[in-house]
Simulated scan of single mutants.
Amino acid sequence: MSEDRRLDVLRAIVEDYVATKEPVGSRALVERHSLGVSPATIRNDMAALEEGGYIAQPHTSAGRVPTDKGYRLFVDQLSTVKPLSSPERRAIGTFLETAQDLDDVVDRAVRLIAQLTQQVAVVQYPSLRRSALRHVELVPVGLRHLLVVLITDTGRVEQRTLELGTDLDESVVARLRTRLNVSAAGRRLSELPVALGELTDGFAPADQVLVNAVVAVVEETLAQESEERVVLAGTANLARVGSTDVRSIGPVLEALEEQVVLLRLFSEMAEDHAAVAVRIGRETQHDGLVETSFVTTGYGDEGGGSVARIGSIGPLRMDYPGTMSAVRAVARYLTRILAQ
């Protein structure tokens, strides 16, 4: 049979199954799609697809449903990710651009993905391991307390208060602030030890106590806050009628609670060459997620890389083009906002 026609038949089966939640028969394909061939030819094509493992018959006298292999071929044949409509893009931009800080941005993004896809949304916090320092602020608070504020290029803000044994000299604080930002701003976490180690040069011995104390609190803060974490929203969508096999909800929820599972998937999928990566069923390599698919993309670096990932987890029978489009669109807005 024609390879192109086989793909057309598979595409029609996937689209109908996603839309109707019912196994698809040859008669339905003839009625709903202009495939340009006879019902007998379509039945032959379906038989060949079934033999190849791309579709399966759930029970006798039923139509056919896509298998993991069939979904994979369908996704791989998507030449482009369909764009969102102009109203949808405007709504995303307005919703995210009014966020107050990084926590608010992440919270809004994960809720937005869940709403757009009606599935489980997952957003990875920008990691300090992949972020760079944008600015360090030193604010005297009283005579012997110094507020150290770290701001990363992804919008994370970390604060620590330093208690000193002697009164602060504001001129020394101002010089240290300048030196810190010249030496450390724009550097990744892995590059900071060398830059911070050279800060004491040029300061009087009496002032080096302050310098060392500030360097220590900066290093400790970055080390403590470098732990990877993810935020979820939309887990209730799993319970919607027809969204997922009821028997699979428990294992899926257990898998979602294990952040290490999600972080592993994010890490592995970051290595995919596709702009939007998709893992289907057993490709997730986790027993609890065999009835789901995971769609992700990176965000946070306008240069083409990423500092974290965003994604959506839903049933195998998901709207792949729509989910991929929503995830990519929100990721692009996140990247733009974090770069401001």
Rank of each mutant, 00 (worst) to 15 (best):
V9K: 03
R11Y: 10
I13K: 06
D16M: 14
D16A: 14
Y17T: 05
A19Q: 13
V24D: 04
E31W: 15
S38P: 08
I42C: 07
D45V: 07
D45S: 11
A47Q: 12
L49M: 11
E50S: 15
R64H: 15
P66R: 07
G70E: 04
T80Q: 14
R90N: 12
F95S: 02
A99T: 09
Q100Y: 09
D103V: 06
D103C: 00
D104G: 06
V105A: 02
V106Y: 00
A109N: 00
Q115V: 07
Q124W: 05
Y125V: 00
P126N: 08
A132F: 07
R134N: 11
V139L: 10
L147K: 07
L150V: 07
T152P: 00
D153N: 15
G165L: 11
E170Q: 08
E170C: 04
R175L: 09
L176E: 04
L180V: 03
N181G: 06
P193C: 12
G197D: 13
E198T: 14
L199V: 08
T200E: 13
Q208I: 11
V209I: 14
V209Q: 09
L210H: 06
V215H: 05
V215E: 02
E219D: 12
E219S: 12
A223D: 09
T235N: 01
T235D: 03
L238F: 05
G242W: 13
S243H: 11
S243A: 13
P251T: 08
L253H: 06
L256N: 01
E257D: 15
E258H: 06
E268Q: 03
A270V: 00
D272H: 12
V276M: 09
R279H: 06
G281P: 08
E283K: 09
Q285S: 10
G288A: 08
V290H: 05
E291I: 03
E291G: 08
T292Y: 00
T296W: 02
D301A: 11
D301P: 07
G303W: 07
A308F: 01
S312V: 00
I313S: 03
R317D: 07
M318D: 06
P321T: 14
T323V: 15
T323H: 01
S325K: 03
V327F: 05
Y333K: 02
T335P: 02
T335C: 00
Q340V: 10
Q340W: 07
